[in-house]
């Protein structure tokens, strides 16, 4: 059962690899690595007291990161961190957080 599920997922990934242009694949990869840095505080298993962002709504994450970035939402540390990311990077994070379970 596990094998066939894995196989199915794997075939899907293989198809993606065949059909996606390299740039798109690289973007996805970058989103993954970029977002992994967030997990240091926003633990993916919900440990700690930072907001859990696993499965967080994409548009909400993007709007809140932008609000931290422009100062319209005030945090303790997130304003300083959000200013380090471009709009494109914030979208990558929003996509990735929304996708994980």
């Amino acid at each position: 059962m596990k094998c066939s599920r894995t196989l199915a997922a794997g075939i899907a990934v293989s198809m993606m690899a065949l059909t996606y242009v390299p740039q798109a694949a690289a973007d996805t990869t970058r989103g993954e690595l970029l977002t992994s840095s967030c997990f240091a505080c926003h633990s993916i298993d919900g440990t700690g007291n930072m907001p859990n962002l696993v499965g967080y709504p994409r548009d909400l994450l993007i709007s809140q990161m932008k609000a931290f970035k422009d100062g319209s939402r005030v945090g303790t540390i997130m304003n300083r961190l959000a200013r380090g990311y471009t709009e494109e990077e914030i979208v990558l994070m929003g996509d990735y957080f929304a996708k994980i379970q």
């Binding site: 990934v13 690899a17 694949a25």
Partner: peptide, 29 residues
């Protein structure tokens, strides 16, 4: 979480064809 680590990470990493092969314990070919 197991599903997450196996599928989503692999997919999101987007490591393409060669690494996809590496992701199978039961590749048919």
């Amino acid at each position: 979480m197991t599903n997450f680590s196996r599928r989503n990470f692999l997919k999101a990493v987007g490591i393409g064809g060669a690494a996809t092969v590496a992701g199978f314990g039961c590749a048919p070919n």
